[in-house]
Design a protein around this nucleic acid. Structure first.
Lengths: 269, 269
DNA sequence: CGCCAGTTTGATATAGGTCAAGTGACGTGG
DNA sequence: CCACGTCACTTGACCTATATCAAACTGGCG
């Protein structure tokens, strides 16, 4: 798992041989070298998204490879509430895993690109590497917990805490992907975007960020965020990265039960 | 799927032979008679919960069989935000399915009971009935969408809309389980509970319900809710049951790809 | 009878929304 | 090179939905 000290993940010996895009999948520690290699061998296609473009994954496995995107319901009346913020390395939607077509779709925030593997190939891959399915399910659970944390933010935290929490979360998630160092990262979200995500008005986001700056907890102009005192910022909003950890079970489960079951069911088909 | 007309689900011929507790699982239409029978054969144990009791599912498959419960993070400072409202028939937690230990735990609202099947047995069951795993994953996805709807409520809807939406959602979910008829159902939530769930103060929930009553959209005292004009209530809050539908794909997929894959992987182990 | 939890009512406070205007950076077309 | 439009950010004035506090009222129950 990723420490709180800013160090990159250390326990993936084959990390260098596989594209960075798969970091989130192997971060759980369940994947082995051959799984990672197989993932890289999939017939991926790259797709680029213009800013503010809508995107449908269908049943395919799509991983954001650059840029930022919101997952949100097709805009109902008025402003729509983004449900999750998708960062590079995140699986865009889990329709292929759950077999359940989601209500939500992806909307890029800035220019972005997506790696896409057709559902058929993914199924074939999982045939031979069931741990990959397990890793995807683990990501699914983690991403749900992230959405739950957003719910807690909006339901219980003040504007100051919400923004602080978002900055802490982004620092962690981006660092995990190697996109943040020393509490600094690039964030291509407008204040209006942040407001939409955190259910605040753009104006109030502005004043809130100013307050964080005034307190010396956030600095940096434009899209360059810097968190000079991460500890204090985390304390302010009660951020704890536990909900972002890929796997809270300490023991490596060779094959998770549910998967083993499904796997063995193959014999009867 | 369940129509909007109050009729119970009609397409499960073996519905009468299996306990009502499994309705949510077969509602998706993927399960067959033998799957339902096998589910009922599992070595279930019943566990009763006192009001306001905390409950840990571990890796086991737990289904709420009566009462009500909140799923929530262990209370951080101050009031904790419930993440989802668990009704009879709902799977309490998906740790066993995803292999990911959840941060949240269950807290009963009133006296409740839970059916519990040990993870080992569930795995063995899925071995022979992979469609059951598929059904659980579908439930997982649906429950996530329900949580997303709560996020939208708290983020974007006024107090009046939030409460109205909750009442509409409960009507649908309880009717699906046979626990609501003609827009009437029993709800053992205090106004303070409703407030905790919807991120409103108890006082404001009270005034909001009064307003709904004044408008003739809600009636009934105590825990007995009656929605005399469901159509108007739904219009008020923009409720649409789409997000609650178990399966939005019209064609019955015999075995979902991801499962097929895992299943066939069994041969290689 | 008296307690308790839940509900109701009123008075007051405030976090955050809305509206409106102004600034600064950046790109585009003449 | 300059005029212009646009988009993000900023600031100020004002407003309102909802919270908070406090006190009654209600109904069940030991």
């Amino acid at each position: 798992m990723l420490g709180d000290d800013g160090s990159p993940p250390s326990r993936a010996p084959w990390a260098k041989s596989a594209p960075a895009i798969f970091r989130r999948l192997w971060e759980g520690g369940t994947l082995e070298r051959r799984d990672g290699a197989a993932l890289a061998w999939l017939d991926w296609s790259r797709q680029t998204l213009a800013p503010r473009a809508s995107f449908d994954c269908g049943d395919d496995l799509c991983i954001l490879s650059s840029g930022l995107a919101f997952r949100q319901r097709p805009a109902e009346a008025g402003a729509s509430q983004p449900i999750s913020l998708v960062l590079p390395g995140d699986i865009c939607c889990y329709t292929g895993v759950t077999g359940h077509a989601a209500q939500s779709s992806l909307v890029s925030v800035v220019a972005a690109s997506v790696m896409r593997a057709p559902s058929r190939s993914v199924a074939a891959l999982c045939e031979r590497h069931p741990k990959i399915l397990a890793a995807m399910l683990s990501n699914l659970a983690t991403d749900n917990e992230t959405a739950e944390e957003l719910l807690i933010s909006i339901g219980r935290r003040s504007a100051l805490e919400r923004v602080a929490h978002l900055f802490c979360e982004l620092e962690f998630r981006l660092r995990r992907m190697g996109l943040a160092r020393n509490g600094r990262y690039r964030l291509n979200l407008t204040q209006a975007d942040i407001g939409a995500y955190l259910a605040l008005s753009a104006v109030h986001v502005n004043r809130t960020i100013q307050e964080l700056r005034r307190r010396g907890l956030v600095s940096g102009r434009g899209g360059d965020i810097s968190l000079p005192d991460l500890g204090a910022l985390r304390r302010l909003c009660g951020f704890s990265p536990a909900y972002l950890a890929a796997d809270t079970l300490s023991e490596p489960r060779p094959v998770p039960q549910h998967l083993q079951a499904a796997v063995q069911a193959g014999a009867t088909l």
